[in-house]
């Protein structure tokens, strides 16, 4: 029997720790719920007017393992107050912890004014909606949560590996190939704006042929992308880029310019980690004389590579 406790206790502890914060309320009276945006937030220094009746207390605490930002904590306290019909939230205690991450513990009194009280707006007495960032003032609490959820983290590193297909004609002694499969690996970094992203991509590929012939390809260049959410946990992206490409085989090294088109879909396991599948096509113009490629009269060989890769995207 004791063993059950040993299992249940860590399980419950982990469950509680997964939430960003915990809300505890104690209301002695409640009314019809009101709009969260209109709840007046009184800071600690503010004096509660006598015409306002206390209806209960609200406590919001960051959990042990996760920290919650001020916006999350305050919106939770305001939402609890509004749900109980309170239109005033008076903060009584604010604990601020800066390390290792910012987190807050808040105790507050929920109250309801009769309507006669017309507070003068100041830094210590403001409607909740006015405390939000200017760009988000007109959003409801649920819309704000949606906004915050959809707001992308600004930097992404993507590491993927997958199948590569060489779609250009290539001839090695004794064999001619129109298509050859291989291995592809890819590393990307991009900085995201709301709709656009720009960054760098490194793409490598390896194909082997009969009689120990091989071909190693690398592409490196800047990339522009369009990206966005299509569902709560799904994101799409399309990009294009122009860069340097390099091709090495048994005979030597050749260089050229390449252009890339790519698209991808990503499933967000968490806000910071996603699993993605990418499809990309690289067209390169390789110049040189070394190698067994079908160079044209200008000494160039047009290369097409198509690849499907899957891997990890890390957002920060």
């Amino acid at each position: 029997m004791k063993n059950i406790h040993l299992i249940i206790f860590p399980f419950v502890f982990l469950l509680l720790s997964c939430a960003e914060y915990r809300v505890s309320t104690r209301f002695v009276r409640s009314f019809d719920s009101v709009d969260s945006d209109s709840v007046i937030v009184l800071q600690q220094e503010a004096v509660m007017p006598s015409s306002v009746d206390t209806i209960g207390t609200v406590t919001v605490k960051s959990t042990l393992l996760k920290s919650a930002e001020a916006r999350t904590i305050l919106s939770a306290a305001v939402a609890a107050t509004a749900e109980a019909g309170g239109n005033v939230l008076k903060l009584t205690k604010v604990d601020y912890r800066d390390h290792p991450e910012v987190s807050y513990h808040v105790m507050a009194v929920a109250a309801r004014s009769s309507g006669e009280w017309q507070p003068e707006q100041s830094a210590i007495c403001m409607p909740y909606a006015s405390l939000l960032p200017y760009e988000e003032r007109n959003l409801s609490v649920s819309e704000l949560a949606e906004y915050l959820r959809k707001r992308p983290l600004r930097n992404t590193v993507s590491l993927t590996v997958g199948f590569d297909g060489l779609c250009s004609d290539v001839t090695y002694p004794g064999n001619m190939y129109g298509f050859r499969g291989g291995l592809n690996w890819r590393a990307e970094y991009y900085h995201c704006l709301d709709l656009f992203a720009f960054g760098f991509v490194y793409d490598g590929a390896y194909s082997s042929f009969a009689n120990d012939y091989y071909q190693q390809f690398a592409y490196f260049g800047p990339q522009m992308m369009l990206h966005g959410h299509i569902a709560q946990r799904w994101r799409l992206r399309f990009g294009a880029g122009l860069g340097y490409c390099m091709l090495q085989d048994n005979e030597g090294l050749n260089h050229g310019i390449g252009a890339e088109l790519c698209g991808g879909i990503e499933y967000l396991v968490s806000r910071r980690v996603g699993l993605g599948v990418n499809v990309h096509n690289i067209t390169g113009s390789i110049s040189g004389e070394k190698g067994y490629f079908l160079f044209d009269n200008d000494g160039r060989w047009l290369l097409h590579r198509f690849a499907v890769t899957a891997g990890l995207n890390i957002h920060f």
Binding site: Q43, E45, L91
Partner: peptide, 10 residues
């Protein structure tokens, strides 16, 4: 800062 204010974007 005294009090609790939601973080801003800028």
């Amino acid at each position: 800062v005294a009090g609790l204010y939601p973080e801003k974007n800028v």
